[in-house]
C-alpha cells in the first residue's frame, strides 16, 4: 500500500485544532402510538453531548445500553439527523461550510455486527469498492484489493467470496478495509470488536493499532468493555442516559474515577482474582428508561451520594481542581453546588 493510495483530505486547521468538535448534540426519538400515530413520548437518546477529539488521538466512549453511545456515533456520520447541536470537523461546521457528502469522505464507521454490515449478495471486493466507486475515484477495484491486502486478507483468495463464507474476524477486516478505502481521517468504531472471540479480538486490535500509526488515523472507539477501551484509547468519555458524565485521560480515570457512576461501572468489572472476588454489586437494579429520564442529575436515582440538589439541578461539566484535563459532571466537585459534600468529591 503506497502513500499515494491513501489520500485523505488535507489538514486545514493545523495540529492544535481538534479534528472533531461536538457541541450540545441532541437527538430525541419520538415514540409513536395511538390511533393517528401521534408522538406519545420521546426517547432522549442523546441530550446535550459535547466533546472534542484531537488529531491523532483515540477517544474511547463507554457506557451501558441505552446511554446513547451508538446514537452519538450515527449522528457523527450523519446517518441519523440531529435535532440540535453542532458538529465541527477540522474547523468546518457540518451543514454550513461542510456538506454531509464531504463529512462522509473524512469520517467513516465500522459497526459491531460484521455480518449485518455486509450486503450478503455482494462479493467482498464489490463491498469494499462500493464507496470509492460512489465517490468517483479511479480504479476502485485496484484500491479495494490493496486495502484488503493491507488488512490481512489476501485479495486473490477473498475478493470473490461472499460474506457468509468468511469467519467473524475476517468479515470485520473487510469492514475495516471498506472504511479505509475511503481515506478517512476519523474512524468511528462502534463496538467493532465486541462480537468477536477473544483470541480474534486481539488480532483485530493489533491491526487497528498498526493502521492508526500507518495512516495517521484518529479513532472514536465505542465499547462496553473497559479493558479494551483502556488498551486502545488516549482519553475515555463515559456516558449515562444520553449525557456525558466524565471525560478524562485514560491513566487518570483508571487510577481514580471521579463520577459515582464511573466508579460503579469500573467496580462492576470482574475482578480476575479468584482470591479476591467481588462481594457486593456496586449498583442495584437496571439503568432507568431513557424515555423519561430522572430530573436533575440523571444518575441521582441510583447514586449513593445523592442529595436534594441532585434531584433538582443538573450539574455541569467541569475540570477537577487537581487536574483540569479530568472533567466530570457532578455536584460533589462543585464547591458552589449546595450539595452537603460540595467540593469534596467522592471518598476514596
Amino acid at each position: 500500500m503506497s502513500a499515494t493510495d491513501y489520500a485523505p483530505k488535507p489538514d486545514t486547521g493545523g495540529p492544535a485544532q481538534p479534528l472533531l468538535i461536538v457541541k450540545d448534540l441532541q437527538k430525541h426519538f419520538p415514540v409513536r402510538g395511538g390511533l393517528f400515530g401521534r408522538t406519545q413520548a420521546k426517547v432522549q437518546a442523546v441530550d446535550g453531548v459535547s466533546f472534542e477529539v484531537k488529531k491523532g488521538e483515540t477517544l474511547g466512549i463507554v457506557g451501558e445500553s441505552g446511554c446513547g453511545k451508538s446514537t452519538t456515533a450515527k449522528l457523527l456520520i450523519g446517518l441519523t439527523e440531529k435535532d440540535r447541536g453542532e458538529i465541527i470537523f477540522d474547523g468546518l461546521s457540518l451543514g454550513q461550510r461542510l456538506p454531509l457528502k464531504d463529512l462522509r469522505k473524512g469520517v467513516q464507521m465500522v459497526f459491531q455486527d460484521s455480518y449485518a454490515t455486509l450486503n450478503p449478495r455482494l462479493t467482498i471486493l464489490d463491498s469494499v469498492a462500493f464507496g470509492t466507486k460512489v465517490q468517483g475515484l479511479k480504479d476502485p477495484n485496484g484500491l479495494a484489493r490493496k486495502m484488503m491486502d493491507r488488512v490481512g486478507l489476501n485479495p486473490n483468495r477473498f475478493a470473490h467470496r461472499y460474506p457468509h463464507e468468511l469467519s467473524g474476524g475476517q468479515r470485520q477486516r473487510v469492514n475495516i478495509a471498506r472504511a479505509l478505502a475511503m481515506s478517512p481521517r476519523l474512524v468511528v468504531l462502534d463496538e467493532a470488536v465486541s462480537a468477536l472471540d477473544k483470541s480474534v479480538e486481539a488480532q483485530v486490535l493489533n491491526l487497528l493499532n498498526d493502521l492508526r500509526a500507518e495512516f495517521g488515523l484518529t479513532y472514536i472507539f465505542i465499547s462496553h468493555d473497559l479493558n479494551v477501551v483502556r488498551y486502545i484509547s488516549d482519553r475515555i468519555l463515559v456516558m449515562y442516559l444520553g449525557e456525558v458524565v466524565e471525560v478524562a485521560p485514560v491513566d487518570s480515570i483508571w487510577k481514580s474515577q471521579a463520577h459515582p457512576y464511573t466508579r460503579s461501572l469500573f467496580s462492576a468489572m470482574p475482578s480476575m482474582d479468584p482470591d479476591n472476588r467481588t462481594q457486593e454489586p456496586p449498583l442495584a437494579g437496571d439503568p432507568p428508561n431513557p424515555i423519561n429520564p430522572p430530573s436533575g442529575c440523571r444518575f441521582h436515582t441510583r447514586c449513593r451520594f445523592a442529595s436534594d440538589v441532585c434531584k433538582s439541578d443538573a450539574p455541569r461539566l467541569d475540570g477537577l481542581a487537581q487536574n483540569a484535563a479530568h472533567m466530570v459532571v457532578c455536584h460533589l466537585y462543585d464547591a458552589a453546588s449546595g450539595h452537603p459534600r460540595a467540593g469534596q468529591g467522592i471518598p476514596a
Binding site: E64, S65, A268, Q279
Partner: peptide, 11 residues
C-alpha cells in the same frame, strides 16, 4: 446484560 447488571446476576 449490562456490566453493572451482570455483576448483580453473578453474585
Amino acid at each position: 446484560l449490562d456490566a453493572t447488571v451482570q455483576i448483580q446476576i453473578l453474585l
